[in-house]
Structures are given as structure tokens and as C-alpha cells.
Amino acid sequence: MTKPVVFVTRQVASEAIEYVKEAAEVEVWEEDRPCPREILLQKAEQADGLLTMLTERVDEELLSRARKLKVVANMAVGYDNIDVPAAKKRGIHITNTPDVLTEATADLAFALLMAAGRRITEANRFLLAGEWKSWSPTLLAGQNIYHTTLGIIGMGRIGEAVARRAKGFGMRILYHNRRRRPEAELEVGAQYRELDDLLRQADYVVMLTPLTPDTAKMIGEREFSLMKPTSVFVNVSRGGTVDEEALYRALVEKKIWAAGLDVFQKEPVPPDHPFLTLPNVVALPHIGSATYQTRMEMAKLAAANIRAVLEGKEPVTPV
């Protein structure tokens, strides 16, 4: 009996690959860069399963050519790179990797919050440039974190994990979500607010909502105008949830204090991207879940989803 074929679009943990190999013929794109579109389309035509990254666009064009395809396992919690309705129409399972990256992403979100609020990377550049000549009471002074107010936009699993960290800093926790989260309110004392109220009150705003048609450019010029001039904006969701031009103006015009950004509307960003010229921006190359342990678990979960579908079972974490 011919084994099904699985194409993996990037090198991932060998344990995950070996697990899929027990049920399928596996081919891996070996280069440490996104698989070129034409190669991806060619491989999809022959594949029963795809293990993809957020860099791959699984759209109508690809799905219409992938006549054997049964499952796409996206190695990410988000899946805005996939046309889910088009896949569903064809009976193709779409899966993601929730939960396993929650704590690592929350760590990174809080690290960005602290780095932007306390000017950590700016201070590091100052030191390395040889500009530190003497101590001064106002030298690189930042904003308090302890006993301030945190506003979380998107209170899912990662939002709750960020809130737990904030609780340890004695922060007052506000959140905005499509639905109230009574369990989060009970566990960490989070208080629900309408978006405008959250933006007015928060000293730190952390963006954690998924990118959907409803959340595209959810935070723009009007929203930044509501924030305090001492507030810090952190985005670890998707770049498309924010109007980047409005954020740039808010930072330059000092309508807000600083920003910590792990995601951008178009990735990777060029070295001359406007955000990279601003001293009050801490910018990272989309490393929210980038710990060895977490990426291992993400790959293993994606592999488990593929194998389950190929063996005629329900996927572990369906979208």
C-alpha cells in the first residue's frame, strides 16, 4: 500500500519528523528561509498533508491545485495565513498549535513591556556607544511598572498568562475581549472594560488579539489619541491589527511614551523601516514563541495533528 505524502515547509524538530514518517513519506524543505511559492505549489499538488509555518500562504490558488490534500498543520497559534473557509469547503482539516506556546509568548510580551517602559535597549545602545560619561538623576529615566495599570486587548490563553505575570508586579489588570472572561476575572482580578475606557486608563497596553477582518487596524490614530502620553504600547499579536503609520506618528509626536513590537504588517522588516529609527521603540523579529522547548512542542503537536488525520482520526487541535 502506498504511503501518503507529507511536505514540511521548514526544518523542525527531528522527533516530530520521525513521528510523521511512521505513517507517511516525508519531504522537508531544508533551507533556512521560506519555501519559494512555486515549489510550495508543486509540492502541495502531490501532498496528503502539509506542515506549514506562518510564512506560507495557504490560499485558494494552492488549495485548488492540492487535490489529494487532507490536512494542513500550521505550526503557530494564529492561522491568518490560511483560507480556512476554502479549506473547509474541500473537506481539508486545518490545525494549529495552541497552548504549548502560551507561556513562552507571555514571557516575551512581558519582557517587551519592561524593556520599553524602562528603556532597556536604548540604555544598552547608549552604553555600547560610549556615551555614558557620568551618573545623572534623569539619565535614561523610564516609567514605573510596579503598581501601574495594564490593559490587555484579547484575553485568551496568552492574555491570561500575561495577567498572571502582571499580578506578581502588583499591577491593576484591565482587559477587553469579544466576550467577558469570568474565570480570568476570578483568577487574576482582571476587570472588563470597553476598549476606549481601557486605553484611557492603562499605563501599558498589550495587544494579543488574533488578526481577523474585525481586528484589522483595530488600533489606529483615534485609539492612540486616547492613551496617556506616558503609556507604552506592546504588540505580540499580528502586525495587521495596528495602523503602523498611526503608531509611528503617535511615537514621534509623543502622544505615547514607547512601543514594544514583535510583529509587523510586512515581515521581515527592512533595516530602514521607520520604527527602527526611533529610540523609544523596542523591535524584535517575531520571536514570541522562540524557545527551544516551545518550538519542539509546537512541531510535535503539528506532527500529531497530521498523523491523526492520515490515520483516519480527528485532529488533536482543529481550527
Score class of each variant (00 low, 15 high):
residue 152 I to T: 11
residue 123 A to C: 13
residue 148 T to K: 15
residue 78 G to C: 04
residue 140 L to C: 12
residue 103 E to L: 03
residue 108 L to I: 00
residue 97 T to M: 04
residue 62 L to K: 06
residue 98 P to T: 02
residue 87 A to I: 03
residue 109 A to Q: 03
residue 123 A to F: 04
residue 160 E to P: 06
residue 71 V to C: 08
residue 147 H to I: 00
residue 125 R to C: 00
residue 112 L to G: 11
residue 160 E to A: 15
residue 120 I to E: 10
residue 59 D to P: 10
residue 74 N to Q: 13
residue 145 I to V: 15
residue 136 S to Q: 15
residue 121 T to R: 06
residue 146 Y to V: 13
residue 114 M to W: 01
residue 68 K to N: 07
residue 106 A to F: 11
residue 101 L to A: 08
residue 66 A to S: 07
residue 94 I to G: 12
residue 92 I to F: 02
residue 122 E to Y: 05
residue 78 G to D: 05
residue 157 R to H: 15
residue 130 G to H: 08
residue 83 D to V: 04
residue 122 E to P: 13
residue 150 L to C: 10
residue 109 A to E: 01
residue 54 L to K: 14
residue 75 M to R: 14
residue 151 G to W: 06
residue 90 R to K: 14
residue 106 A to L: 00
residue 120 I to L: 15
residue 131 E to C: 03
residue 57 R to Y: 03
residue 149 T to N: 07
residue 130 G to R: 10
residue 132 W to S: 09
residue 114 M to F: 04
residue 130 G to N: 06
residue 116 A to L: 04
residue 149 T to A: 14
residue 75 M to T: 14
residue 56 E to F: 05
residue 85 P to Y: 05
residue 91 G to I: 09
residue 125 R to L: 08
residue 152 I to Y: 05
residue 125 R to H: 12
residue 147 H to G: 11
residue 130 G to S: 10
residue 134 S to Q: 14
residue 82 I to P: 03
residue 81 N to G: 11
residue 137 P to K: 09
residue 72 V to Q: 07
residue 109 A to V: 03
residue 86 A to L: 11
residue 159 G to F: 06
residue 96 N to L: 01
residue 90 R to C: 02
residue 55 T to N: 12
residue 103 E to K: 13
residue 66 A to L: 01
residue 59 D to L: 00
residue 159 G to M: 02
residue 107 D to A: 07
residue 140 L to Y: 08
residue 118 R to S: 14
residue 123 A to N: 09
residue 117 G to E: 01
residue 101 L to Y: 04
residue 107 D to T: 13
residue 71 V to A: 03
residue 120 I to W: 03
residue 78 G to R: 10
residue 63 L to C: 09
residue 113 L to N: 07
residue 73 A to V: 01
residue 101 L to V: 12
residue 121 T to F: 09
residue 119 R to G: 11
residue 82 I to F: 02
residue 110 F to V: 11
residue 117 G to T: 10
residue 134 S to P: 02
residue 124 N to M: 01
residue 92 I to C: 04
residue 129 A to L: 06
residue 105 T to N: 10
residue 77 V to L: 08
residue 83 D to C: 06
residue 68 K to T: 04
residue 103 E to H: 11
residue 80 D to Y: 08
residue 128 L to M: 12
residue 143 Q to L: 07
residue 128 L to K: 15
residue 92 I to Y: 04
residue 105 T to W: 01
